[in-house]
Design a protein around this nucleic acid. Sequence first.
RNA 1: GGUCGGGUGGCCGAGUGGCUAGGCAGAGGUCUGCAAAACCUUUUACAGCGGUUCGAACCCGCUCCUGACCUCCA
Length: 486
Amino acid sequence: MDSNLYIYNTLSRTKEKFEPLHPPLVGLYVCGPTVYSDVHLGNCRTFVMFDLIYRYLLHLGYKVRYVRNITDAGHLEGDMDEGDDKFAKKARLEQLEPMEIVQKYTLGFHDVMRLFNALPPGIEPTATGHIIEQIEMVKQILNNGYAYEVNGTVYFDVEKYCKEFNYTILTNRQLDDLLENTRELGGQNEKRGRLDFALWIKAKPEHIMQWPSPWGTGFPGWHIECSAMSSKYLGNSFDIHGGGMDLAATHHTNEIAQSQACNHVQPAKYWMHTNMLTVNGTRMSKTKGNGFLPHELFTGSHELLSRGYSPMSVRFFMLQAHYRSTLDFSNEALEASDKGFKRLINAYGLLEKLNPSQKSDIDLKSLTERCYAAMNDDFNSPVLIAELFEAVHIINSVYDRKTAATAADIEALKKLMDDFVIGVLGLKEESNQSDDMGKLLDFIINLRSEAKVNKDYATSDKIRIGLNSIGIQLKDNKEGTTWNKI
RNA sequence: GGUCGGGUGGCCGAGUGGCUAGGCAGAGGUCUGCAAAACCUUUUACAGCGGUUCGAACCCGCUCCUGACCUCCA
């Protein structure tokens, strides 16, 4: 289990050798979506990138417990402690119960993740399902002296915490600057310090989602759910905590503070943050209104798109950038990824049709090593993909009989592609050569081949053009005819 | 204002003190009934100005531009 995996840790701002706390077990916690509206493509990027990370850890042989929460309570609209609950607001808008909102968008999220071929996490806990755990944690933080209660609301005492711990460890900000530049927020008259944040919030009578607590009826603050659920399922201290970069400064900073105040340990050994998806250089976000919804992308129903793109092409587009880089979204970039993905996956399909030779002029050992080296270097999927195109080159060349490969080489090629394209990158063929449509197409291709043998090119071209018009491309070569979806 | 990033060829996007990233697009060729695919060859590059160095796109300084976070947000 001694891998050479290096992970960029936000805590240290360097790449560190990955050494799990309890190998071969790995605890992975990722902040999931807030299910009051559809997830957009930027959200999806984070979950696809952590899917890559999860898959690679599994591939290396780790036993990974992957926890990704569903936030279904506790998020307020606008300023701290004053705004509407997002779920209640949306429920009023759509004339539904808040839990109907939660159900609707949770199911939608799962559908999208399935389309992107993301493995489901082992545990997907919800905030509303863990109110008791959150209350217990708040009680413990109060007992430890890092929080105080005012009129049914419990606040975290950041100033007190700062005397013993480094509050800004994730972002390296200066506390004085934070104090000077933090905007005037709600609840100021109740709070002792302007950086203090709510652990438990007293519910107004009209607030729909509320629960009894030692401090009266209320609901949990924004950050406590992840602390409570991660420690419940992964222990007070676990291996990797991930999420989008936008969460680092506030949500994750406060999570660390809560866990330290409660358990006196750093919750996670490695903090990983994925970068943002941008459109024309600015971040895609719900509030900016430049968010793409996955189905708009799949169907092409968006003004910036010339056509629809399949989930696998979009996944491939995401994988072609490193998770810590911003990725700029455009129709042109997507078009390029779509073609690249098809090139890769078509080569994968050709693996079954390769003919072995006695000799070999390829070096798969070095290629395989480079694939591992790429992923071991902080999950560098773009470099991995570049290496895999070397494999594509080899496969095509062997198929064309321009390069010789032994049966053992071909097996190794298959393993390489299975391991990395299917297993690690999580890509898959979107059309299957052996299903009913495949058999039907084989039949049609045979008819066309007969026409070609008889030099009846009018018929053969008619078939080819006709299939092309419904999205099936035929490719003639020495071995016969193959097809793929356009 | 503070913190942290980034500026790479037509586009997306890696990387590094000296060795082709890769994909897409463009050009030429091979193959082919034609086409496509595949294969071969190939053009376009590291924001600007200084400095360190035998050598810098990569290190340092300055300038310009730009992004994220600092308020819920993946």
